[in-house]
Amino acid sequence: MDALGTARVGLVVAFTLLGLFFSFVSMTGVLRLPDVYSRAHTASQADTLGAGFGLAAVALAIGWEAAGVKSVLLLLFIFVTNPTAAHAIARAAFEEGTVPWTEGDERR
């Protein structure tokens, strides 16, 4: 395998690991954070990068083919839908009158 191929494999591995890392952070955040708002932060955001790096790795591994282009499109859609979904959840909580957790409140 030539140098270019090795670099590509390296990048794919790096992106996959980064994606795993951010997905792990996201999961940890959902478990540790105190209320619906802060969980919505981490569930959507760390996930954006988690799925983002994962799909970037896929696109890089597949290369300039139909499936690779589609995974780039998927990436774009995640970047549009993810914040929209997070906003919908947070807004629903807000309209239900859920007061955001602040420092000093009991952890739930």
Binding site: Y37, S38, A40, H41, T42, S44, Q45, A46, T48, F79, V80, N82, P83, T84, A86, H87, A90, R91, A93, F94, E95, P100
Partner: peptide
């Protein structure tokens, strides 16, 4: 703007009331 704010970690747009954005920050 609202979606960019939500995409940026640590800030989450909760409500857009006319030109007022209610943003939750971590």
């Amino acid at each position: 703007l609202a979606n960019s704010i939500t995409l940026t970690p640590g800030t989450l747009t909760v409500r857009a009331r006319d030109s007022d954005l209610y943003v939750h920050s971590l």
